[in-house]
Amino acid sequence: MDKSEKIRPCAVECRDLSIGHRDGRPLFRHLDLVLPKGEVTSLLGVNGSGKSTLIKTICGFIPPVGGEISIAGRRSCEYSREEMARTVGVVLTERGAEGGLTVYETVSLGRYPYTDFLGRMKAEDIAAVEQALEEVGIANKRDCHLSRMSDGERQKVMIAKAIAQNCPIVVLDEPTAFLDVAARIRTMELLRKISREGDRAILISTHDLDLALRMSDNLWIMSPDTGVIQGPVAEVVERGGLRYILGDDMETGRYASLYDTRR
C-alpha cells in the first residue's frame, strides 16, 4: 500500500453520516467516508442499496438525516446555493428538454453560478467554456444541437458543463449506463484525465464492476449489513469487499475470487 495515497487531501469527508429520506427510517447510519482529490472513486452497490440517496445527499439535493458532510474543509450546511453550485457539479442520467440547445449553449450553462442575472458571459466565462470543450474533446461540435448527438457525446457535453462549472468535485450518476463498450472506456479515460488535470475529485455511481476495477482509483461499496466499504481498489478487493455486490452464494460468489486473481 502506498502511504502517500492515504494522506492525499480529501475533497469530501463524511463524519457519522446518516442518510435516507426525511420521512422514513435512515437507510444508513454512521457512515465515515473520504473522497480523495485528484482521483476517481467508483460507488458500487446492488440496486436499492442507497447509492442514489448517498449521491443526492452529497450533492445537497436532500439533507443528511444525521451527522455531517464537510466539503473542501467546510460543513456542507454552511454553503449557500450559489457556493454549492460552484463546488459540486453533477452529471445525471436525467434528460430534460435540452435537445434544442447547441453544445456551446449547454456547456455555457455551466457558467450559470458565475454570470449576472441575464446570464451574460464575460471573457473569463468564455475562456472557461472553451477550455471545457477542449478538455472533453468536443470543441469541433460546438454548434451541433444536442438532439443530433449520440448518448456518448451527450454525456461528454454534460461532463464539459460540469468542468465549465469549475467545481473541485464532480459527481456522476451512472455515466456509462447507456453507452457501448468503446464509449464506456473513453468516458472513464476522460474522467481519469480530468481528475488528474484539475486535481478534481470524481465520484461515479456505476454497475460496471469491470470498468470500476480497472479504471478507478478507489471504491466505495455499499452493503446493507456493514455500511460502506471504502479504500483503494486493490485494498477493497483484498478485504473481500466485492462479496457485497456479487453476493455470498455459490453461484455468484465464485466470481469474487475471479476478480481477486485478476488484480
Binding site: 450533492c59 439535493f61 460552484r86 436525467e94 430534460g96 441575464l118 446570464g119 462549472q165
Partner: peptide, 17 residues
C-alpha cells in the same frame, strides 16, 4: 436565465444554484 437552466431538467437546474 433560470428558464435556460430549466431546460436541462430539475436536478441539473438545482445543481446550477
Amino acid at each position: 436565465k433560470p428558464m435556460n437552466a430549466m431546460l436541462l431538467g430539475e436536478s441539473y437546474c438545482r445543481n446550477l444554484g
